[in-house]
Structure formats: structure tokens, C-alpha cells
Amino acid sequence: MIFLKFLLYVWMVLVLLGAFFYAPLAKGLGEYTRVMYFHVPMAWITTLTFLIGAIYSILYLRKKDIRYDYYSETANQLGLLFALLATITGSIWAKMSWGAFWNWDPRETSIFILLLIYAAYFALRSAIEQQDRKAALSAVYDILAFVTVPFFIFIVPRIYSSLHPDPLINTQGKVTMNGKMQLVFFNSLLAFTMVYFWMLKNKLEVIKLKMKLKQLES
């Protein structure tokens, strides 16, 4: 496992170097386009981790095992963190490219709503004392919120014209990047995903230990 950790470290360093020095610039665009190598992985991990959180919520409702509630809370915590990072990196892009950090583009609106939803999720969690009730209600809210997420990510930006460059999953299904850019981009995507899974694994391990401790105490 230690070996894998070092491998991840070297990989991330290579990705960072590649993003700043190796990848060529897109034609006609400035240095600020390099934020793409960080912004897109953040946005992708946000979607992924909210999906994982929702799956754990469903598992909780089916199995009624309190462990899954902790897992889904953890995944959503990480989701909030990555959504914030995606917002910040996107804001930097917006400042350089559109002239303002924030101007209510449909994409910006949808990520803002995503932040609001999961902030409300944690507000709900903090409002309930009883543990199993907290788990069940927040799981239901999580699933309810998650079914509305596609409306923000896919439908609203399609209806209202957005200045946002085509997302990775676009309607034409093509990638408009040259070879070197693609190499760095997909490596960055994978490396950040691995970092995310490593973070998630560590947090889940802590939860397992805490539960074991509680068992020993009682």
C-alpha cells in the first residue's frame, strides 16, 4: 500500500508539471486555459462522489445499517469540498475569459444550487438529535436531492444558452484537443480520481475504527 501511495505522489507531480509546462496552449487562448486540467477533474469528482453518497443512502434505507449513513455523510462532505474547488477554479477561468468572477451563467447557477442543496443536507443533519432518525431522514433528502441534480447539470444549461465551453460529455461526443493536451488531461483526470478514492478510503477507515472502538467500550 505504501508503494501505491508513492506512485500516486509521483504521478501527481508529473501531472502538475505536465499541466504547467508540457501541454501546449490551445490556439488563440492565453495561459489561463491551463486551469482546465484542474477544473474538469474537480467537477467530475463532484458528480462521482455525490453519486457514491446517494448509493450509500439507498443502501442505508435498504439495510438499516448505521455504517452506511456515516459513509454517505463522508462522501457528501468530500463532494462539498470538491464542488467548492470546482467553483473556485471555474471562477478563475471566468475572470480571465469573461471578465468577472461571477456573472450567473447557467453553469455557475447550477453549481451554486448544488452547493445550496448539500449545505441544506448538512443543515438537516445538524437539526436532528436521534441517530437513526437523522440517518433515515437525511438519506431520503439525499436521494430526493440527487434526482434533481440532473436537471441542473444537464437540462438547465441546455435550455439557457451558456458561454461555458462544451463539457466533457457533450452532444457531439468528440474531444477537441490535440495529442499532448489529451495526454495531460486524461492523466490529470485519472490521477485526481485516484487521490479522491484514497481520501475516501482513509475517511472510511477512520469510521470503521471508530465503530469498533464504540463496540469495545459498550
Binding site: I113, A120, R133, Y141, A145, T148, F151
Partner: peptide, 18 residues
């Protein structure tokens, strides 16, 4: 849940925004 009045709008708003 325990808190009744205040949370309702906070929880509904993001879900009903579409």
C-alpha cells in the same frame, strides 16, 4: 425532525428551483 419552521424553506428551495 426537531426544527420545524426555519428549515422548511431552506430544504425546499434548492430542490424546487427547477
Amino acid at each position: 425532525s426537531g426544527a420545524k419552521g426555519a428549515l422548511f424553506t431552506v430544504l425546499s428551495f434548492p430542490i424546487l428551483l427547477p
